[in-house]
């Protein structure tokens, strides 16, 4: 009789020890806990200010895209799977651009104002679709930005195809990069704190079981509105920020690649983990810059990457890496054969 083998996964001893904070007894154990947590914060800090000036621009874009990915992941974990983050981005961008261009507001007013107005308009746009869930919601969110793009194109509002140019710039690249990084960390830690709080559990519950939320005496529509407002607010900030960064605004803000990027980052990094999207954005951001020469093939590569990951590694990179870090895998003999469970 041939003995079969199966793969066994067990926690590393150090993981078992460090699970409980009171058991920490050596530098090695503390390092085991601290290093993976400090690595991104310190790494990004160093990277942002040490890279050559050209790549600093890339870092800014990466941070902004990281925020969009976080916002997508947050909304997805509330059961609102949007395929059109570009809508929020564009609304924020146009609000800030209009505030700066038509009202002459300075940059430190137009960005917060643009964010706020954008988030309100976005929520209003999405409000009719809140009765939908799952696929239906995704379908509608996919087409709203594309339709709005056609509206801007054909009616010529806000500069139409030309867009608005000559907006106020940021004072300097260092300020820009610092601002975007701070915003990214605020978004990340803020969302994580929110999801882990008792109030945030309601958002998690929305996806798990919206009818039970309703049976708990909470209006799911109201909580979905809140989730959309938070999620779209983040994207609107990104839009407002990038408008001033590029000093112009155009129809490309509605484009499909802006909707695809956050999804790609989340899927590559690992959906529903918040760290995953961040990791995904840090990988994909510079990658997309490196692929700039390919022009329109850039989006092809994103989309192909997205498709590959969703089929091959649906859990994403972060859970995969975390598992490798925390667990040992080994082949053991299974004398009784492998059960079919």
């Amino acid at each position: 009789m041939s003995t079969e083998r199966r793969k066994e996964r067990i926690d590393r001893p150090i993981k078992a020890v460090t699970d409980d904070i009171f058991c920490l007894s050596s530098i090695r154990e503390i390092a085991y806990l601290v290093i993976p947590r400090m690595l991104p914060v310190v790494g990004l800090l160093l990277l942002a200010f040490l890279v050559p000036p050209y790549w600093r621009k890339v870092m800014v874009i990466t941070f902004v895209m990281g925020m969009m990915a976080l916002s997508w992941d947050f909304m997805a974990s509330c059961g609102l799977t949007s395929l059109g983050q570009a809508l929020f981005f564009a609304l924020g961008a146009y609000s800030a651009g209009a505030a700066n261009h038509y009202l002459g507001l300075p940059i430190y007013l137009s960005i917060p104002l643009g964010t706020l107005i954008g988030a309100v308009i976005s929520t209003a746009c999405i409000y009719p679709t809140l009765g939908l869930r799952g696929i239906y919601f995704s379908v509608v969110t996919l087409i709203i930005p594309l339709m709005l793009m056609r509206v801007v194109e054909t009616t010529g509002i806000f500069g139409g195809t030309e867009g608005i140019t000559g907006l106020s710039p940021f004072p300097g690249i260092i300020v820009t990069i610092a601002l975007s990084m701070i915003a990214l960390w605020i978004t990340f830690f803020g969302l994580r704190r929110l999801i882990d709080s008792d109030y945030g559990h309601i958002f998690v519950a929305l996806k798990d079981n919206d009818r039970a939320v309703e049976a708990s005496g909470l209006s799911i529509r109201w909580f979905k509105v809140q989730a959309i407002f938070i999620g779209s607010g983040i994207c609107c900030f990104c839009g407002a920020f990038m408008t001033h960064y590029y000093m112009s605004i155009g129809m490309s803000a509605f484009a499909v690649d802006l909707s695809i990027f956050p999804i790609a980052a989340s899927v590559v990094g690992g959906m529903g983990t918040l760290v995953g999207p961040l990791l995904g954005a840090i990988i994909l951001g510079p990658l997309s810059e490196a692929l700039r020469a390919f022009g329109s093939f850039r989006v092809v590569i994103y989309a192909a990457l997205l498709g590959t990951f969703i089929v091959m590694l649906p859990e994403g990179l972060f859970p995969y890496l975390a598992r490798k870090y925390q667990q040992i895998e080994r082949w053991v003999e299974a004398p009784g054969g492998i059960s079919e469970d």
Binding site: H201, D208, A212, A215
Partner: peptide
């Protein structure tokens, strides 16, 4: 609910 409806992730 007849079909139990807990919040599975919590």
């Amino acid at each position: 609910f007849q079909m139990v409806k807990p919040f599975y992730r919590l």
